[in-house]
Amino acid sequence: MVAELMIGNAIVPFLFAGAFVLMALGAYHMNPSRNKISGVATGIVATVGGIFMIMNVIMFQSSSSPMGTMGPISNYMAGLGILYGLFFTMIGLILIVGAKLNVMAPIAIVVGWITLAYAVFFNMALGHIIPGGNWIYLASVAYMWFIAMNIAGFSMAGKVSERFNGGFLMWSSLYTFAIPGILMALAIGHV
């Protein structure tokens, strides 16, 4: 139980940073007739959040203290964490500079499909590697990101309505970052 508490608490700052970034990006896309300056503000939130996420993962990997490592989760989540940290940092910098986002469309789709590979892995393999581990919620988060990143990619390429993308991102912020963050921080459930 103690080990589970440490695992849960260590990843929480990472999750809340992600919730911030997604809330900002979702709200930005929900309003297509927005003020132009809001792109710079959203970009700052995404850049700071993305750099914070990368810092978190590097910190967890380089620390040798039990609190520093995320335990079994860290071994499987670090790649995914860096993937999203990098993506958010790039989106943020593009919004700050004011360049076009459409080049990020294929990158979003590739990130989404790599996340699907993680989701299949969480579903099929982790129960055997870590006996008794409950990875159902984690797998559902990864499936959700597969859908969300594909919607984001096709939206940036102009194929899906921007408001739909924004709404889905705001829902993803709640379901995939804020809710698991609260569950793990307060040790209500071990995800």
């Binding site: 300056i37 710079v40 593009i94 004011g98 459409n102 080049v103 390429a157 921007e162």
Partner: peptide, 19 residues
């Protein structure tokens, strides 16, 4: 998607270029 993006430079619903 990348070829579609490159083929049509005008499709961009996401950034309105206030940098």
């Amino acid at each position: 998607v990348y070829t579609a993006v490159l083929a049509n430079e005008d499709i961009d619903a996401s950034s309105d270029g206030a940098g």
